[in-house]
Design a protein around this nucleic acid. Structure first.
Length: 638
DNA sequence: CTAGGGTTAG
């Protein structure tokens, strides 16, 4: 058997391996004589075929037999360590490299940086990077990618800036890292800039399929499907990855039918989905609530013999949870033989999204019994559940649990705690945690301000806003939603208007539909119905349910049936079967003594006969959460 | 005829 292009597929690799063992290292497949070269070849082939553990076995075998290991072997093995997240072995190899004087080699250093960053030790990676005397483009792009994948986009951007400052010309691979960073930052302006940079660097040459794919992904994540599709159409050589990002893009933008059509087209072109393709699509289905497609994909996995990995199960549980299909989520979860923290977290958050606080806590108890240790993510999930239910005592109990277990309280967990205390009415408790935090990010500030606003403390929220700006934290769109709500609840109309003005003109933020919703609410509550209506008419976005709903509620509050009618008409056009708003409208007519109209609305409601889940509210008394459903009451133990 | 950084998800 001859090897084409020096690359073996998995079957060939295994045959080769078996042959080497059988013939005592007489390697007859190729002309390679040197035993070290043979091993390295095998290791490489296993890694290219995505079998890192086989590669590591060979490495162990080499070491046991006292075989030489060189600076070709080390980077390859490090890559295998990174794939299976074996930090220990990685560190050991690092030590070995130092002992044998191989650590001065740029290949080896770059591989070490990669290994450390993929295994989550970004500090070690950065240390090596900083100490490296012979950094090259590869070192830079590895560092950028490391920060990006490690969830530290700010640091990645900083490294990019340094790289530019040092006048290092990015290679194609480096640009791919950058484009994919902007995809997740979802900043279309930065994205266009890097696109221009890519085009400039490639000049006459055609874009490579990898970089084009990265650009397609970036544009569709920024919501610019037209650009994405254009790039996709221009590709003359499509890979399964390009199809994956294009289809995911359509689903993410809620164009599910077009996504499904493309999926069929892909199969017709004889391109077959990989595990990641299916995984991506399932995740996107959860994102937009595409239950039907999600179910179909679930069936597709079973029909086509895909490996039902934990990652796959995780994605499915998550998707079902987001689509409120809690039974499917649970059945799937129960069917998994081995479970990790992630899947426990996924099923707990599925219950959380279905507002089943009791079930979620029940699972939390089971989780501890089955000896899976809850982590910070679990805590954040449970805390947000308490926040939603207003269960202060339960939240406090979790807080104690976190401290007793010695779980690391990072910014996210701290923010969840602040948010829980604030929204459950213990604003002082929230402030205590907030003030003792060493590091506060924008989310924590937002939670604190929204908490104050929610309890009618509009002035305090505004003071916090000034403090925040003074401490150098830049407000974002969510900050202003909290602030505008705070003004609305406290009746601070003038202040609210100037907050809105500051956001648009002072900071140049483009208001989203939510901001207009807050403004309509603010003006409407204050009785400025006409002004609120003007705001809706003049806004550059298409008004949605929430906006008209705010006007309708205000019309009811200020007993203005004619304005109510205007709002209700719009709402019925957007969502004809909405039960709640019909009720509200009939109440408005009732207040104005327009009983014929009341009867009319009731008749329409009967005709539509919508079955809608009743809303509920809840309150916690002595550790018992009471849930109110339209007059009835349910409660459960915490 | 071996080798390091790349696109998709979490």
């Amino acid at each position: 058997m001859k090897i084409k292009n020096g690359f073996l597929n998995l079957e060939q690799t295994r045959q080769c391996h078996a042959h080497i063992i059988k013939t005592h290292f007489k390697f007859s497949y190729t002309n390679i004589i040197n035993p070290l070269t043979r091993y390295n070849s095998l290791v490489t082939s296993y890694i290219k075929n995505n079998k890192p553990s086989s590669a590591l076995n060979i490495y162990a075998f080499m070491r046991k037999n006292g075989s030489e290991v060189d600076n070709f072997t080390i980077p390859t093995i490090l890559k295998a360590c990174a794939q299976v997240l074996m930090t220990h072995l990685g560190k050991e190899i690092h030590g070995f490299a130092i002992k044998n004087g191989l650590d001065g080699d740029a290949y080896v250093s770059n591989a070490l940086i990669q290994m450390y960053s993929e295994c989550g030790s970004l500090v070690s990676a950065r240390y090596l990077f900083d100490e490296m005397p012979n950094r090259d483009v590869v070192s830079w792009s590895t560092m950028i990618r490391g920060y990006h994948r490690g969830g530290l986009p700010e640091e990645a951007l900083e490294v990019m800036r340094e790289m530019r400052f040092m006048d290092i010309r990015p290679s194609e691979v480096a640009m791919i890292s950058m484009v994919s960073l902007f995809a997740d930052v979802a900043d279309v302006d930065l994205g266009k800039a890097i696109h221009a940079c890519v085009v400039r660097n490639c000049k006459d040459e055609k874009l490579g399929v990898a970089i084009a794919t990265a650009l397609i992904d970036m544009y569709s994540k920024c919501g610019n499907l037209a650009y994405a599709k254009q790039l996709f159409n221009r590709l003359n050589q499509n890979s399964v990855v390009s199809w994956t990002v294009m289809i995911s893009g359509y689903i993410r933008c809620n164009e599910i039918n077009e996504g499904v059509r493309l999926f069929a087209e892909m199969i017709e072109e004889n391109v077959f989905p990989s595990e990641i393709t299916i995984l991506s699509l399932i995740i996107e289905c959860g994102f937009v609530g595409g239950l039907q497609l999600g179910k179909w994909l679930h069936a597709y996995i079973l029909r086509n013999g895909f490996e039902f990995s934990l990652a796959m199960a995780n994605a499915l549980v998550d998707m079902y949870g987001k689509c409120r299909e809690i039974r499917s989520a649970r059945t799937l979860f129960d069917g998994m033989k081995s479970k990790d923290v992630m899947i426990w977290n996924a099923v707990i958050s599925a219950y959380a999204q279905a507002h089943c606080i009791d079930k979620a806590f029940e699972l939390f108890i089971h989780m501890k019994v089955s000896k899976v240790r809850p982590n910070e993510v679990t805590m954040v999930g449970l805390l947000s559940l308490c926040t939603e239910a207003g269960a202060l005592e339960m939240g406090k109990w979790l807080h104690t649990y976190i401290e007793k277990q010695g779980l690391e309280v990072d910014v996210i967990l701290k923010t969840a705690l602040v948010d829980m205390y604030a929204k459950c009415g213990d604003v002082n408790g929230a402030y205590r945690l907030f003030s003792e935090a060493i590091y506060r990010d924008i989310c924590m500030w937002n939670a604190m301000m929204a908490g104050y606003g929610m309890h009618g403390c509009g002035e305090e929220a505004l003071i916090f806003f000034v403090d925040m700006e003074r401490s150098g934290v830049k407000p974002n769109g969510i900050t202003f939603i909290g602030l505008l709500n705070a003004c609305s609840h406290a009746g601070l109309v003038t202040e609210g208007k100037s907050v809105f003005d500051k956001m648009v003109h002072g900071l140049g933020l483009v208001p989203k539909i939510e901001h207009y919703g807050c403004m309509v609410d603010l003006l409407g509550r204050a009785g400025l119905l006409d002004e609120a209506h003007e705001m809706i008419k003049s806004m550059p976005l298409r008004p949605n349910m929430i906006v008209w709903g705010a006007l309708l509620a205000a019309s009811k509050l200020h007993k203005n049936p004619s304005m109510g009618e205007i709002a209700a008409t719009q709402i019925l056009e957007i969502e004809p079967q909405n039960y709640g708003y019909n009720v509200l409208m009939s109440n408005i007519y009732a207040v104005a003594n327009r009983w014929n109209d009341v009867a009319g609305v009731r008749r329409v409601m009967k005709e539509i006969r919508v079955k809608k889940e009743p809303g509920f509210s809840s309150v916690e008394v002595n550790g018992l959460v009471h849930k109110f459903i339209r007059g009835g009451m349910v409660n459960w133990k915490s």
